[in-house]
Every structure is written in C-alpha cells, then in structure tokens.
Design a protein around this nucleic acid. Structure first.
Lengths: 211, 211
DNA sequence: ACGTGTGAAACGTTTCACAGCC
DNA sequence: GGCTGTGAAACGTTTCACACGT
C-alpha cells in the first residue's frame, strides 16, 4: 500500500477546503446544524458540483437526499488540513507590512500564533508590535529554536529574501509564506507560497484594459 | 472581425507576463541587451517552453537562433498589460494593513499611484499616511471623482467589504483587489481579485502535514 | 547551429449528468 | 423527491518535440 505516499489532495481542492471551513463556521454561527452542497457552495462562492467532488476526496461524510452535518464536516476538514494542531509563526521584517501581518486577524485564528518578529534595523529592534518585541535578525536560529517555529512569513525586501529562505531551510522551518516580489529558489523539502501584491495590481490593470 | 472581443490572453499567461517584466528589468539593470528563453525563464523562475508559448500570444518578437531584445520585449509586454498608462489607486481602510499597503513598494511602481486612503473610524480620519491624509469613508463618491480613481484596494473587515464593492461598482470603479477574508459577490463588469492571507497559511499547514 | 514558434500530447481542473441511497 | 457521490466529457494549462528562419 504505502508506495511513496504522494500528495493526496489536488492543490485547487485544498485551497477551496479552507473556504468551506469559513463557510461552515458562518452557517454554524447562524444556528444551522445541517446543510447541503447547494447552500454551502453558495456561502463559499463556488458551484455545488465541485464542492461535492472536493468533499469526495475526504470520504463520504454526507447523507444522500439529506446533506451534511455542519459540525461534523467542519471537524473533518479541520483534521484533514492539519488545523487541529498548533502552528507557531515567525514574521521576518518589522516594517509596515510585517507589523500589519502580525496583527492581522486571519493570522491569529485557527491554531496560528505569531510567536516572534525579527528585523535587521537597529531602530526597529526592541520596539513593540502588539504584545511582541522586535528581535534582531541575527538571533534567527535562537528564536526558531526557542519558540519552536514551524511557519515563517517573509515581509522583507526582495534582496534579503533568498538568504533567509536558505537559512530557514537549514533550521528545518519548511513552510514559508513570502511577500517578496521575486521568485525564490526553494531548498528541497520546503513548501513556499508567494503573495505578490504588485502582480495582482498588474493583472487588474490588464483586465481593466480589456474591452 | 470584432465578434464580441473576449479576453485574449489566458489568465495564467497574464500572471506570468508580470514576472517576465520583472525579470527583464533585472537583466537590463545588469547591462544585458539581448536574452533567450532559457536565460529569461531561469530569471523568472519558470520553464523555457511555457515562456515561449506565453510570448507567442503577443506575436513574434524574438529572432530564431538568436533570442529577444530585452528592451523591446519589455516595452511590448508593458503595452500589452496596460502598464503604459496611469493607474490611480484608492485604499479603503487605514488600519495596519491599509497603511502598510499604501507604502508598499510594489504599489507605487509602474504607473500605480496611491491617490487616497479612506476609513470609517473618526480616530483615523485626518491622520497622515505617507504623504496622504486619511479621509472619511462617506466621502467615497467625492474622492473617486476628484482623484479619478480606477483601482480600489479593500483593506477592511469582511463585513464592510461587500457594501463597498457594490458602491464602487456604482461609481464605475471596476477593478478591485480585496484582502477581506470572504468571498464577495461582484457586480457585472467588475474585475475583483482576492488575496486571502489566512487561506495561504492554511494551505501551508496542510502541506506541512503531508508526509 | 541555434533558439524561436507552435502543433500535438499529457496533465490537471471543472462541469455535466445521472445512478444510487436516504 | 431530493441530494450525494462519481464516472465521463469539456475545458484549460503545461510540457514535449521538432520544423523553420536566421
């Protein structure tokens, strides 16, 4: 059976599962105990067919002719996504973006805890960000160990990003979310996701020009 | 000829074109005048085949056996993406994220200019953000007209986002970049792109759990 | 000889449509 | 009757491989 156990869920499915979770929470807080692919899909902003196909990857958790039990489904997606454990986040860069991210609601919910924030600039080191104090960039290794970091967020200028990626890899931090506007070379075994704000604007510009 | 003139370039191609632009800039600043799909692809972090296929949508701008002229290609992509005009950006929400975005380098390059920033909170209205002053949310219509806004960025809590989207649609601002952690219903003709930070973290969590 | 430009194959994702079960 | 779960079709995207122009 255990061949080499490749990735199980399609990438696109994983992205949508997070949306279903949010939608299920919304339904639950509205007092609903059961739902259907139609209702849930509407809440999540997708079409019902793909929602059912996505859920079918997790096994049969619905009842034909009836639908899904909100709490049960929500629990199951949570487990599948690995959100039933603690994720300790380190933010690299205490500029505007880094500070904004450390307080961002989405970053502090569902098991994600921002545990430390680092910067190179001596002016920023020591200043307060939320309930954290900015620590020096050179303490990276020590901070990673002390706080048992498992996810890093790069909110640094493009030039600094690549070195940090390598260093994080050495320290066995293998999940990185980068806001640096550059493609990065990722060490073996690292999962890196990029959010590129200027790319998003440029795509909008293109779409706006279309007739 | 002009049927109804649908979108010309595949979505995925548009996203990569922005990366090629950045890569071309990097090559140019290194003094290179010519390049090839191999070199450029490496710089942009993609494979050469798809780069050539992407560029073929724009027409033939390379020379067989030789490659591409950096400046020429760069210019051409710029035009195709509509980056040869002015884009006047409005930021909605002057919280941490909104303030960070207004100063973010990617937001201020290549023809994009942040022209105004709005917030509902009386405490924030009147405060300075970069070289702008936060204006009251209720002045939305007036500000859009005054600054001739054509792109809006939503850095507001999820609940406020949907109303703003409708209102922006009325005001003929049809390009919106949303950071609200919710799917939004978009008015006809509007282009909306979402950046969902907590979704990104959750995807990382899932990937990290994979064996 | 070399690197582009591009059909054709391979792959991934979404939509359709309906059999199966409650 | 209604809604799930899922093969099969449709669509979109990436990769391959090579003919063609310089």
């Amino acid at each position: 059976m255990s061949e080499l156990e490749a990735k199980v869920l399609p990438e696109a499915t994983v992205a949508r599962l997070t949306q279903y979770l949010r939608a299920l929470n919304a339904l639950e807080s509205r007092g609903l105990e059961r739902t259907s692919s139609g209702v849930l899909a509407k809440e999540a902003g997708v079409n019902p067919a793909i929602l059912r196909k996505d859920l079918s990857w997790l096994g049969s958790y619905g009842t034909r002719g009836v639908g899904y039990v909100v709490r049960e489904l929500s629990e199951h997606i949570n487990n599948t996504l690995g959100l039933n454990r603690d994720w300790r986040v380190l933010i690299l860069g205490a500029g505007n973006l880094g500070r904004a991210l450390s307080g961002y609601a989405g970053f502090t919910t569902r098991g994600f805890k921002v545990r430390a924030i680092l910067d190179v600039s001596p002016e920023l080191v020591g200043t307060e960000v939320g309930n954290l104090r900015v620590e020096p960039r050179n303490d990276l290794a020590e901070v990673v160990r002390r706080e048992e970091i498992n996810i890093a967020v790069l909110a640094v200028p493009g030039d600094a990003a690549q070195d940090l990626v390598y260093e994080l890899g050495e320290l066995d931090v293998n999940s990185v979310l980068s806001f640096a506007p550059k493609p990065l070379v990722v060490p073996r075994g690292m999962n890196l996701r990029r959010v590129d704000l200027s790319t998003e604007l440029q795509i909008l510009a293109y779409l706006a020009v279309q007739p």
